[in-house]
């Protein structure tokens, strides 16, 4: 079972497909898979594998 931002996920789709499905704007997020940062051009060719730990981060208010 993969984890995306700590939540279980078990479909085999690409990062690009996942972002689109969830309504993220790809230009405004960064994605890390198993601790490695993906570049934007890797989103559509990177499949979420079982046991992957995926982090999707973006900007929030902060000082």
């Amino acid at each position: 079972m993969a984890k995306i931002n700590g939540e279980d996920f078990n479909e085999v789709i690409t990062i690009g497909e996942y972002l689109k499905k969830k309504g993220y704007t790809a230009a405004r997020v960064a994605v890390m898979v198993n601790g490695e940062i993906l570049s934007k051009n890797e989103y559509d060719c990177t499949k979420i594998q079982p046991d992957d730990e995926v982090e999707i981060v973006g900007f929030v208010g902060g000082g």
Binding site: A30, V57, G58, F59, V60, G61
Partner: peptide
Amino acid sequence: ITLAVRRVNSFTGNILDHIPEGVTLLPN
């Protein structure tokens, strides 16, 4: 303006939509 980097979901509003054009972003 400073910002923080955190896990985000797609449902909450995006802070970037609320910052006026031309303001330099300084993430921490």
